[in-house]
Design a protein around this nucleic acid. Structure first.
Lengths: 237, 237
DNA sequence: TTGACAGAGATTGTTAACAATCCTTTCATG
DNA sequence: CATGAAAGGATTGTTAACAATCTCTGTCAA
């Protein structure tokens, strides 16, 4: 089951740590690995066809980025962000990403704009076809691509981490049917880039992030933790 | 030599990965480990009194944060940020830290303010006594503490990484005599916190970061890389 | 029926030996 | 004397076995 959730393409090509980390990132962003999922070393070894060392190193990297929870003698679990951690992640995104959008608008050339436009097309197409997992991934990837256009690898890495953690948060607190990002808003941001209107890009991004956060906040108290309480609540009273 | 540079206090207490990482962080911030220094596994094992596994895991963490350069089959070296990486780090700091200061000003209570005041006293004292290494470390730590006051661990970790990388940059491009941070500016920021003037805190922080960056930029073309070219240039022409 | 306890099995953490690569020294040669 | 090749040592990368811990199951007693 884990193998199926993580290993989308072929598994014959052996990966390095970065490859493994990215595959798990993607699986988390697409919500194939829900929060709390146990990531046992053996399963990951089989899934990726690598030795235990590689797996352990990858898990350490994921843990250092707050995406995986590494418990002593108990193994690795997909992180279950608390409410306050979720707020911190959104606060960090509102801090960083509007400025990323501003810089992207200043630095985007025509190739960047058409790349992003193509990306939005793929996003719309995935949504049209009802391929929800792909749509979620592309939607998150838009934010990372924007950081790439801003020509700042330091912030790009930060955005990547924050986007992944946001997926975890949506997986825990957001309604499953909710769309991760309104595509129109992505389109609006791209339009600001096209017009080299950096201030518009920044404020559109801020609005966009607030919308994402609101959508999560509204549905918050629902899923909570995947523990005893909810499972037993059916026959408790 | 490495042992001496890294291992300031006693070394009998065995450390976990986080402890090792923090010790190396501090050594880099205090510029006892200049950019390009080789961090051999054996030396670190001896310095910290731990097994090779711990050391390798620590090096991986440091590498994932851009503080250490992990070369294939050649070992770990303290990172030597390029000019463009340096610009990226400063850009990220200007993006994040003014907002951190703003949030800190909103959320600081009296205990926070007096803690920070005590910290500034220590900073001033270290400078007065001419203890340059301690002064540098405390100066960097002020920024991290501010993030702690802002009550956001995600951004706190980011600031910590950026401060460390800034030390590397100053070690490479800045003049050795330069003071890392003007203490008055730290004091001004604290004053803004005391008055709960969040906008002032943000703009003071931005100014402060620009000053640090300017000081580095002015002296830029001097040290560069520590490689063949400079060593051989004495008898090249 | 419920709870506690013990043991087997499974999983993770650690260590040590082995393999592979790199660096330095030495030696031969143009 | 300079250049290049080869051997030796040193360092890193990998694997496999071992130790420690946890989890699950079955049994027994209350």
């Amino acid at each position: 089951m884990l193998k199926n959730a993580v290993d989308q393409k072929a598994s014959e090509d052996d990966l390095d740590e970065e490859g493994i980390v990215n595959r798990i990132y993607e699986a988390i962003i697409e919500q194939r690995l829900p929060p709390g999922t146990k990531l046992s070393e053996a399963a990951l070894c089989e899934a990726f066809g690598v030795g235990r060392m590689r797996v352990r190193r990858s898990l350490l990297l994921l843990a250092s980025r707050g995406v995986v929870d590494l418990q002593n003698n108990r193994g690795a679990y997909v992180a279950q962000p608390t409410m306050s951690q979720a707020l911190e992640v959104f606060e960090a995104r509102r801090t960083i990403e509007p400025n990323v959008a501003r810089l992207a608008a200043r630095r985007a050339n025509k190739a960047d704009v058409s790349d992003l436009a193509a990306h939005l097309d793929m996003e719309a197409e995935a949504r049209r076809q009802g391929n929800r997992q792909l749509a979620i991934r592309l939607s998150g990837q838009f934010h990372v691509r924007l950081a790439k256009v801003a020509r700042n690898e330091v912030m790009e890495r930060m955005v990547k981490e924050l986007v992944t953690r946001t997926s975890l948060i949506i997986g825990m607190y957001g309604s499953a049917g909710t769309k991760n990002c309104h595509d129109d808003e992505h389109g609006d941001i791209l339009e600001a880039l096209r017009n080299m209107n950096s201030e518009a890009a920044a404020s559109l991004m801020e609005q966009h992030l607030r919308h994402i956060e609101q959508e999560v906040d509204l549905t918050s108290e629902r899923k909570r933790q995947v523990n005893l309480v909810e499972i037993l609540s059916g026959e408790a009273s």
